[in-house]
Design a protein around this nucleic acid. Sequence first.
RNA 1: GGCGCCGUGGCCAAGCGGUAAGGCAGAGGACUGCAAAUCCUUUAUCCCCGGUUCAAAUCCGGGCGGCGCCUCCA
Length: 482
Amino acid sequence: MALVVFNTLTQKKEPFVPLNPPKVGMYVCGVTVYDLCHIGHARAGVVFDVISRYLRFSGYDVTYVRNITDIDDKIIQRANERGVSWDGLAATFTDALHDDMGKLGMADPDIEPKATDHIVEMLAMIGTLVEKGHAYESGGSVWFAVKSFAPYGVLSKRELDDLMAGARVDVNEAKHDPLDFVLWKGSKPGEPSWESPWGPGRPGWHIECSAMGKKYLGEIFDIHGGGKDLVFPHHENEIAQSHACSGVAPVRYWLHNGFVTVNEEKMSKSLGNFFTIRDLMANHDPEALRFFLLGAHYRSPMDFADRYLVESYKSVARFYDLFAAIDTMDESSAGDDAGMVDAFTRAMDDDFNTATAVALLNGELRRLNTLRFDLPKMKKKPDQYRMGLESLLAGTATVRRLGGVLGLFTRKAADFVAEAKAKKLVEAGLSADELDGMLVARTAARGRKDFTTSDRIRDELAAKGILLQDGPAGTDWSVSFE
RNA sequence: GGCGCCGUGGCCAAGCGGUAAGGCAGAGGACUGCAAAUCCUUUAUCCCCGGUUCAAAUCCGGGCGGCGCCUCCA
């Protein structure tokens, strides 16, 4: 089976056929850097990160472009509020963006263009649109004449009349038509501005993506992604600009991810009900957030709650526990579990069904854990043991590799465990030595069958989120986040 | 008002015409001094009502309920 993707343009799943295989050009709308990123940004980031990873896994040569909007009204406004320069503010939040996305295990996009580095390209495009009669200057700004572009509405399935009827369209004296949107915004004194044939100003929001997409991926490219809320007006306007300029539809497949909601309500900056990635990372492992985000299909809405992250952490930890155990075996296998790879591919080929892919990984984890604990019993039968070991090693390697396609399990297992433990000790206010002392005391108590004492120590630690596990090799501990 | 999405076990969530994946929580069991971890077993007929079909959670029609876009927004 081959890859099938849901195209917003047609509202259907379609076979994915790139323009110039094996090359795939993919453009994703990044963020406007005027504030910290929230979970919604994290979802969009993770979704398209996984899509790019999977396309590569499938053998495509992907060029992944994700832009940064570093000039915009909100940036100017926020900078004024804080009494800092607009570009300084943008730089600050760009750094924060990189930091946060990096923590979430995002592979860097191949190209990360900034709006302010592409004023020339935007002006050229606006010039062409004016020449072709799709845009006009008025009141120091340049506007796109929506009615000059017949296909307007193809993406968001809107009729011009319906839009007109909506009372919310912006009324602006300078526009010839209420539907028109700005390409070049004439600036007032004191505002950041660039020179243009129409006077000083700054770019409108939509034109940057048209200009940068074209520059880095060409007039027609394969995938354009972003959050569902960008379908209208942003992507609709982007199509209008690009298509009117070049004469061809710019994008073959439009992909949009669903929202993250909180209490069933969309999380957004304007509602103020958002959690920043940083807030969350203070108490949770970034991989838990990624795992959570992958648990639902990318187009479905997801409700967020803290406890889901706790659940996800447990799941992730279960995988690392297996990996850590295998790592200490000092054996390796070049083998691969072909059936597993096949099932995974089928799931992901169906419009990137990460939920099914994760379920597959879970099922395999159970199989491998069973094998892991049964293996010692097989030692008397060398043939059986050898086969079991091979299956365990190959299966584990496969889970790791496929997890990697989802951006999961990329840390060393030992590091994952060590990190979680170190963090928990700090939280519990214990030093490693103090904990060791307690464990030694408890082992001694158990040795003399003083279970009252040993259980008291165990309860004390459990109250701090430190869970003890007694095994043949001694007592180990793990971390709870409840 | 216009456009679109969704409604699956206590919770989260796949499946989208062939008889309900997976996770969390719960119950029972193996293991354990007791636990924990791990493993095994176990919990649904898919919002309601009609229709199409040999066959529907899956398609169509009508309800009810929730959400999103139409204004900045991933």
